[in-house]
Amino acid sequence: MTDEQSVQIEDAIAAAVAVEPSWAPYFELPVIFVQLPSDSRAISASAPHWPQHVMLAPAAFATLDELREQVVHEFCHQWLYLLEEVCPMEVADGSRDLTLPSGTTERSVREVIGAAHVGLALAVLYRDDDQPAQAEQLRDYAHGCLQVLEEQAADLLTEHAAEITQRMRRLRL
């Protein structure tokens, strides 16, 4: 990242914490930001096998709000990846291809849990940012992800994953 992009990332984190101050400690996780190629179709990305690295495309820097959303999104993934190092989310040899409420196919249990987690975090961000329609859409998406898990993969959740999904279900946004 350029120095300017690094400052923009810091500003996006500060903007997220201004909306939800309780998130401040989560952004203390040391993360290395790198650029996605300019021809990438993704706006941001991260991967469980490349921990504490977040990739951002030039489009992520279009506005502070866009960057804030992408940074929150990717930090959600980073924390879930860390949890998965200690507490796997899917029973061994229990793979199943699931479809997200968005229509995205061939997702694993952990990817559906991750989508729910991101959806709920962004729902908080937009609710507290006084964008109730966006918050409601994201909350509904997250609950749709949890419904996919409940209806199609409950038998694949580890004890820890079941606890995490139950906690997400109980959130009142």
Rank of each mutant, 00 (worst) to 15 (best):
A24M: 02
Y141W: 01
C145W: 10
V124W: 14
A133L: 14
G119D: 03
V31H: 12
L125S: 04
E74I: 06
A142S: 02
R110D: 12
V19G: 00
P37A: 13
A14L: 14
Q137C: 03
Q166V: 00
R110V: 11
V72C: 11
I164R: 06
I9L: 07
D130G: 01
A154D: 11
W50S: 10
F75E: 11
W50P: 06
V34W: 00
F27A: 05
Q78P: 01
E90G: 03
H49P: 00
A123N: 04
A42T: 07
E111F: 08
S108E: 13
S40Y: 10
A42Q: 15
Q52P: 00
L138D: 03
P30K: 12
I113E: 02
V118I: 10
S6P: 04
R167E: 14
L120M: 12
H49F: 13
A59H: 10
D129Q: 13
E85V: 11
A162E: 15
H49T: 09
L149N: 04
V124D: 15
L146V: 04
D128V: 13
T158G: 05
P88M: 03
I43D: 13
G103R: 09
V109N: 09
D155K: 06
A18P: 00
T165H: 03
A47Q: 10
A153M: 04
V31Y: 07
A153E: 04
L100P: 01
I32G: 08
L157N: 07
V31A: 00
M1G: 15
A15T: 12
